[in-house]
Every structure is written in structure tokens, then in C-alpha cells.
Write a protein that binds this DNA or RNA. Structure first.
Lengths: 256, 256
DNA sequence: GCAGTTATTTGATCTTGATCAAGGCCAATA
DNA sequence: TATTGGCCTTGATCAAGATCAAATAACTGC
């Protein structure tokens, strides 16, 4: 019996940044990411556009939601908090990811803006209708949801079985890979990257405390695996040495 | 950049046990679980039928697979093992769940029979074709995959933030709920149920060691939260008392 | 029922990571 | 310049759970 709703953290559409949305300051159109021929699908149902400050709550677990939001810019987190304050992050939402799940009304997780985050909001029923009317989109959505499930399970391995050291190293390796992929290159030694997360966010992501995160990062630095320019800027002199610390990290990870 | 394949652990079709599959000793037809009017969809592509012994490996992570299997009977586990032997279970496959993911060839997780398990195997390309030709099925599949993702994230909370005590209690509560749901009732006090998992499987599921699992179960017994008839048969005198131990357990869990 | 194997429980000890506490760094503000 | 507050680091101590070890208990094929 599956219960509750779920939040999509999948991108089914790519934002075309060259054009501006008719309803938003930034005009954008949704480009079908499925079709190789770049078939355009117009989203007429755009209702509003909103920016959230860092730390601002976008939806809370249990909320009734009647909109679906597409992240235009910024980073948001998907998490759940226990009654006594323990929190676990279960996903990261990046530009082009969606907030809200087609078909369900209740939010199962908290969504919080990590950086300044801008959402373009659609009326859910109209959005659903568009999806339903576009089989390739639906197929694409299924595909990406399966990938997401894949990643979530990969993360379960990390949470359940990896040591603090391995967790940190895995996260850093993922960050490096992601940065490299953005530039369409493979991770090379000496790469420098920015940590988009606070120590607290990392801790919530990895199922650790901030102190442990800090200590492990310091230890990796002392051992020369990483070079800390400052708390948020890291250089990786030898990518393989970092991977060695990550346990296994077969081929990727959660952020993807 | 999603990488690797993924294994479906979702049921899109219900097995109609009253009829027998043309290719199998047990003749079964796939009943579309989406359509309320029980529209039948014939699976012509049945190629083979196979039974696995408890503990037998069905697929290994990294295998190339060209078939999709539907679990007819038994329980199988979905897990990943690190080089040094640490293992994390990431899902449980029950009858009507599928082994194998449409569209991808490489298995990302190990699938192992927990009990004697019978699979009905379809040629993947034919199976894919059928799915593609049946939009309601595809929609249903999406829906169930989203539920699965939901559950996986719920489990991440358990793995990352719950104590051993809470993990065990959560698992037991899920089992009780599942048993009750099978009989279409709500959990009532005094319910007795069978643990379908070994201590080792529970440990792998919860990210613990078998010793910790055993100790926590003993402790719960000593405190009167559960009554152990033997290692595998448990009675729950007071369901609320069990839930109290589970941390939060908002409304469900992973097996579902 | 018996030997041999596997699953489970229990105990003693050790390790990892949590907790408690203090201080440093830096940017924004008075 | 001093102050405040957010974020990060570091140290000391503690406890939850892992590890090592051994003793039942249950289950197998015979």
C-alpha cells in the first residue's frame, strides 16, 4: 500500500534560456527533452512566478498543493524532519527539476530553498492535462523517475553501510563529477570546485552531524586528498585518491 | 546525468491466479491493474518459467539482461554489496513485482531469492513493445514508480537518522501493517505475524549487524512490546506501544 | 534420534561517531 | 572600531552500535 504523495525531483523539460516566458520576467519555453528533434511544447498554463530566499520554506510535508513548480534557478532541498528535530535530506532539486507530483495533492516532504531560488508555477490540473496529452513526455517522465529511484537506492547504500569518511568522500566525488559533467569533460586532477552546501546541509544529506563532517573534511585535507582554499572552495589534486576514500562509488551517485 | 540502469520493483500488472499461463505450469494472464473495468491484456511473449531456491542469485549487479521477470510466488531481495562484503538491501520484491527495467540492459543491483521464488520471464524487447502500445499501462507504471521512489526516500530517513531501536520497531510495524492489510483489516492488538526475513536479511535491510538486530528484538521482548513465540513468530500485544518505539513512522514504510 | 550445519542469542570489549562545550573567522551592522 | 550573528573548526567525553567470541537452538539429511 503506497501512501501519501511524493515529490518529483526529475526534470522532464529543459528550460530554454534564450527565450522568455510570457508570464515571467524571464521568458522561457519548455523544450521536450525526450524528442531528439527538439519538438517544442508550449506551456500555456503558467500562472505565477516566485522567488524564495535562502532558507525559506517552499512547501512543508503534509501541505495540500495545487501547483507544480519548475525550478528556474537556484537549489532547493527535499527533506523530512522527525518530531525531535532530526532531519534527513532525501534529494536535491536543481534547475529544471520539478516541485510537486502529478496526480497527488499532499506533499510528503519539506522543500526548502538552499540558495535564492526562483520557481515558475503551473496550475496542477493543467499541467497534468498537458502531460497526459503528450505520450513522449510521459515516457520521458517514467524514464527519469526510474533513474531517480536508482539514485535513491544508491544513496541508501551510502546511508546504511558507509563510514563517515566514505560518505564525505563519496559526496565530494559526486560534486566533482557533476562540475566536470557541466563542462562536458571528465574529472581531471587539480580540479577546483565550489561546495554549494553548508556543513549542516551536508550533514543532513549524509546522515551525520556537522562536527563529524567538519572533522572528516579536515582529516582529508591533512592527508592531502583535498586542498581547502576556504570552507567552500576545494581543490582535488588527485581524483583517484579521492575515489579510494569513497568505499566503492561504482559509477555515480545521488545528485546525478 | 543519470547513470547505469535500474531495477523495477513495481507491480504494474496483477496476476490472475484463476487462469493458467499458456507457457507456464501455472497459466496466468496479466490483468491491467489500471483499468477499473479489468480490461485484460494478453502477454504473448512468455518465453520461460523458472524457480529459484532460497538464497539463489537471480541476477547480479552488472549483468546484461535481456529478459523481464514477473514474480509469480516467493520473495526476492534487491541489494548491493561493497567490495569488502558490506551489504545493503534496497528493496524487497513480492509477487507481481517485476525484475528488470524496461529500456536498460545492465542490472544495477543484485536480485536474490529469499524464499523459493518462481519467475515468469518475458523477452524484454517484446515486453517493452507491449508497454509502449498500452498508454494506460505506462501511466500506471509511472504512478507506481513514483510510489516506489516515495518509499525509498522514506527509508532513507530511517537509514540516516533512526536509532537501532527505532529501525527495528519501524520494520516490525510495517510487517504488522502489511499483514493486516492483506486481510483488509487495520492492525489490532494481539496480532500475530510471521517474520519472512532472517536476522541477517533484517540487518541488511536496516543497516545494522545481526547481533544488534537480535539484541533489540530481545530488549523489545523483555519490555513486553512484543511476544516472541519463536525466532520467526511474533505477537504484538499493543500496537500503539510498538509504534511509540518507531520514532515517527508517519504513515507507512518501505515494503508497502 | 544423531551428526553436522546454520541461525540465533548473549556476553565482553572496542571503535566510531554523537554530544557537549568553547573558540575562531568573516561579513554585516551599529 | 566594536558588536552581533552565522558558519565552521577543534577538543574532551560519552554512548550506541560494531566486533570478537562463545554458547545454545533449530534444521538438515541420514
Amino acid at each position: 500500500m503506497a501512501r501519501g504523495a511524493i515529490f518529483l525531483a526529475v526534470s522532464i523539460l529543459k528550460i530554454d534560456r534564450n527565450s522568455r516566458c510570457s508570464a515571467c520576467p524571464i521568458r522561457h519555453r519548455a523544450v521536450c527533452a525526450y524528442c531528439e528533434d527538439d519538438e517544442l511544447i508550449r506551456l500555456d498554463a503558467i500562472k505565477s512566478y516566485r522567488t524564495y530566499a535562502p532558507g525559506e520554506s517552499i512547501v512543508m510535508a503534509g501541505d495540500q498543493v495545487d501547483k507544480i513548480g519548475s525550478i528556474v534557478s537556484g537549489v532547493a532541498t527535499l527533506s523530512r524532519t522527525l518530531a525531535d528535530g532530526r532531519r534527513q535530506m532525501v534529494g536535491l532539486l536543481l534547475p529544471s527539476d520539478f516541485v510537486g507530483r502529478p496526480g497527488r495533492a499532499e506533499a510528503p516532504f519539506d522543500v526548502v530553498a538552499a540558495t535564492e531560488t526562483t520557481l515558475c508555477l503551473f496550475q496542477k490540473d493543467q499541467f497534468d492535462k498537458m502531460i497526459k496529452a503528450t505520450p513522449p513526455l510521459e515516457r520521458r517522465l517514467l524514464d527519469m523517475t526510474l533513474d531517480e529511484l536508482d539514485s535513491a537506492r544508491e544513496w541508501m547504500l551510502l546511508l546504511g553501510r558507509k563510514t563517515a569518511r566514505e560518505k564525505i568522500a563519496s559526496l565530494l566525488a559526486i560534486m566533482v563529477r557533476r562540475d566536470a559533467a557541466l563542462n562536458k569533460e571528465t574529472p581531471r586532477d587539480g580540479m577546483r570546485f565550489v561546495l554549494p552546501l553548508t556543513r549542516e546541509a551536508m550533514a543532513d544529506y549524509l546522515g551525520l552531524t556537522i562536527e563529524t563532517v567538519s572533522r572528516q573534511i579536515s582529516a582529508l585535507k591533512k592527508e592531502g586528498v583535498i586542498i581547502l582554499e576556504d570552507a567552500r572552495h576545494i581543490r582535488v589534486p588527485d581524483f583517484v585518491k579521492l575515489l579510494d576514500q569513497a568505499g566503492d562509488d561504482a559509477d555515480g551517485g545521488f545528485i546525478a
